[in-house]
Design a protein around this nucleic acid. Structure first.
Length: 258
DNA sequence: ATGGTCGCGCAGCGA
């Protein structure tokens, strides 16, 4: 089972690159973020012609998440199921694919430390943990994959000194991520490569040649429940997909299980 | 050179 996550930064702008990549890579399941499409505009036919069932949760213009699967796609879930008021944004969609409960997440950016959007980010992560606890068990096969907008450790960014006082690295954000992980999710990528493996990034700002200078951050990851993490056989970031014409600013991240 | 790029949608915000 090969599962991928990719923030495509507009599926409308990225569809040719996504189709090419699906054809070449043939993952079993793909979590997409930032489709920036309404559900009506989601190109389900493009994916079905490549052999993928799909589910999309969008709002148009901003956000929007999807799951593609060629190993079945059942019991779709849209947003939080915590019985509180609905999330204002389309940032979470779930489905069962090949026996795995898969979640595609687009964690709020936070904008600035202390900003309303920063508090929204922290509460969103707390709601995600509650959502997981209410809808599935870490004793089962669970994947939560997406754009987390959090740099888990200083190893996951090219120059931590550039991020002092900014979002993505604060103890509050890292603590909120740790709370989600402590429900029962493993970052198999970091476990595989160890804390001394540097320069492995999933996101590079479009500006100022950051990609070519390898100035990026690892903010996209596939987290796995322990039974799946035990069967992990591969974790890679597809850097090639960040190259060429009209790339997303994020690279796809892939995880495989035996 | 004190910015640098995208995508949205058509000004300026968000990332």
């Amino acid at each position: 089972m090969l599962i991928a996550t990719w923030n495509v930064n507009s599926l409308k702008a990225r569809l040719p690159r996504v189709e090419e990549w699906l054809d070449q890579t043939r993952p079993d399941v793909v979590c997409l973020q930032e489709t920036k499409l309404s559900d009506k505009a989601f190109p389900a036919l493009s994916f079905s012609s490549l052999g993928y069932e799909s589910v999309h949760f969008g709002q148009g213009q901003w956000n929007g998440v999807a799951i593609l699967s060629r190993v079945g796609l059942d019991d779709p879930g849209f947003g939080f199921a915590d019985g509180i008021e609905p999330d204002v944004d389309a940032r979470l969609v779930a489905a069962t694919c090949g026996g795995v409960r898969v979640h595609s997440v687009y964690v709020p950016n936070g904008r600035e430390v202390g900003h309303d959007h920063y508090h929204y980010k922290l509460s969103w992560l707390a709601r995600l943990r509650h959502h997981l606890a209410a809808t599935c068990s870490p004793d089962g096969e669970v994947v939560v994959a997406g754009d987390w907008n959090i740099i888990p450790t200083d190893t996951d960014v090219w120059d931590p000194s550039k991020f002092i006082g900014s979002t993505h690295v604060t103890p509050e954000e890292r603590g909120a991520l740790d709370e989600v992980k402590s429900w029962g999710l493993v970052d198999t990528f970091r476990r595989r490569y160890g804390d001394d493996a540097k320069g492995l990034f999933s996101y590079y700002d479009y500006t100022a040649g950051h990609f070519h200078k390898r100035e990026g951050m690892r903010i996209d990851y596939v987290l796995s429940s322990p039974p799946l993490a035990e069967r992990s056989i591969l974790d890679v970031i597809d850097r090639n997909a960040r190259k060429g014409s009209k790339p997303s600013d994020h690279a796809p991240v892939l995880a495989a299980y035996r």
